[in-house]
Simulated scan of single mutants.
Amino acid sequence: MSTPTATRLRAGAASVTVRSTTSAFVTSWALRYFGPWWKAAAMPVDEVLAGPLVTANVDGQAYDDLAAHVTAGPHDKVTYAKAQLLLVRDSTGTGTGTITAVSPAEHLAYRSEPFAGHLAVYGRAPEPVALAAARLAREMIRAALLRDGWTLLHASAVARDGRVVLSFGSKGAGKTTTALLLASRGHQLLANDRVFVKPVGDDLRVLPWPAAAAVGLGLLDALGLYDVVRERLRAGEQLHPTQHPEVTAALLAGRRDPLWEPDGRRERKVQVFPDQFPGWFGMELATEGRVGALLFPRVDAAAVPALVEGGRTLGEADFMSGSTEDRYPDVFGLAQGIDPAGGVLARTTVAEHLAVLPHRQVALGHDSAANAAFLANVADDL
């Protein structure tokens, strides 16, 4: 058995500890994944005394025992993280609310005690266990922040001197493009796709949502980052393991055209670790800030970068509501009684704060240099 290790994550007033007694890979993964955006730090295991906790171990026997428990009797079936999950809830009458689940395809088993703030993960290999532990630790942080009055917005974000520019829009509108272009022109990248916000006095405070950033092959090429990624891969480095193998093969082969799912509706994209933005691309990251302005981009291949007339108000799709979060349903009871978008009152208050801030609608073309120069000027003028 390896030396027990632990990593504590902190965002705002929320904290979660990831602990493992069998694999330092699990806790080092959490440190790498969350460190650039949340205040992740290694900590002595003997200091893990209280607070929300994810225990994650590579333990085939524990996996087998929990899998046998779940499948021995009636159980529910749900889809969680694109895999089938079988689960049973405590029926002993003890009132503990314990939830036991197994994902046969991933060889992962879970035991959640939501009222105790403890969730255990067991599996046969370090990487799946580390991925599951990080995902669940993030969900525990989210639940704590939502209880503390934060709201989750569907937006990208960059910061300069603590002042944040948010970019809104549906998939393909250009949120990621806008954020990465501004990050290449002196702003710090704070979020790729979603952010936590909370009114504090006259300010709207912002915290990042750590996640692998999905960047299409075409956008990667247009940003001038394609060759950097390809050379890193050829040297033996890796991108996030959720990246489809065909994307990795395309990069190694030098293919720059977009790759599509078989149904042709979704693009398969490069999955970038948070720490690869500064490490590979030289982009600085921000860990917090206050909202100063809003952008509403729209990408059109034939467009010349320009301001667009007309107004744009926030709608329900600009908040990360339940309908947008169906990939990770709260099957482990981590966010019982919490609106996943932060509650109607919180959303209304945030929308009111945002409505009075400077905002611009912008059209972007496919000339990244022109887009970057234009966006930098707009951001400076806001």
Rank of each mutant, 00 (worst) to 15 (best):
H75S: 12
A137T: 02
A144L: 02
P241W: 10
T94A: 14
L285S: 04
A14C: 12
S112F: 02
R138F: 04
L334Q: 06
A363S: 13
G216I: 04
L217Q: 01
G292N: 05
V78H: 11
W37I: 00
E231C: 08
L131Y: 01
A355D: 14
G95L: 10
V299N: 09
A183Q: 03
L145Y: 00
G264P: 09
P126R: 13
T242I: 11
V356C: 10
L259K: 08
Y328R: 03
G35T: 06
G35I: 03
A6S: 02
G73R: 13
V54I: 15
A370S: 13
R256D: 06
T94Q: 14
A116V: 13
A11Q: 01
P278E: 12
L314H: 05
P52F: 05
D263F: 05
T71K: 14
K198V: 04
P305T: 06
Q238V: 11
G174Y: 03
L294F: 13
N377A: 12
Q61K: 13
A105P: 06
V129W: 02
M283Q: 05
T178G: 07
F332R: 00
A40L: 10
V16Q: 00
P262C: 12
T176C: 12
R111E: 14
A213I: 02
V88D: 05
A222R: 15
V378Q: 12
A144I: 01
G73L: 09
G289L: 03
E261Q: 13
A179R: 00
D339M: 03
L119T: 06
G289K: 01
A134W: 02
T287R: 15
W260R: 15
D221S: 15
M140W: 01
P297D: 08
G322C: 09
M320Y: 00
R290E: 11
V206G: 01
T178N: 07
L31E: 02
V291P: 01
H154A: 03
F296H: 04
T5N: 07
I141L: 07
A351I: 00
V362F: 07
A214E: 03
V215H: 00
V121W: 00
A363N: 03
G172Q: 07
K171R: 14
V356W: 14
D367Q: 06
E237F: 06
A250K: 10
M320L: 11
A30V: 10
A155I: 00
G282K: 10
A363C: 07
S156C: 10
W150M: 01
V45M: 09
G73K: 11
P278H: 14
A369C: 04
A369K: 13
D59I: 01
A214Q: 12
A286H: 08
L108Q: 05
K82S: 12
H353Q: 14
T178K: 04
K77R: 15
W37D: 03
L239Q: 01
L334G: 07
P126Q: 13
R138N: 10
A351T: 14
T100S: 15
A40Q: 11
A355S: 15
G279D: 15
S112W: 04
L345T: 09
V58T: 03
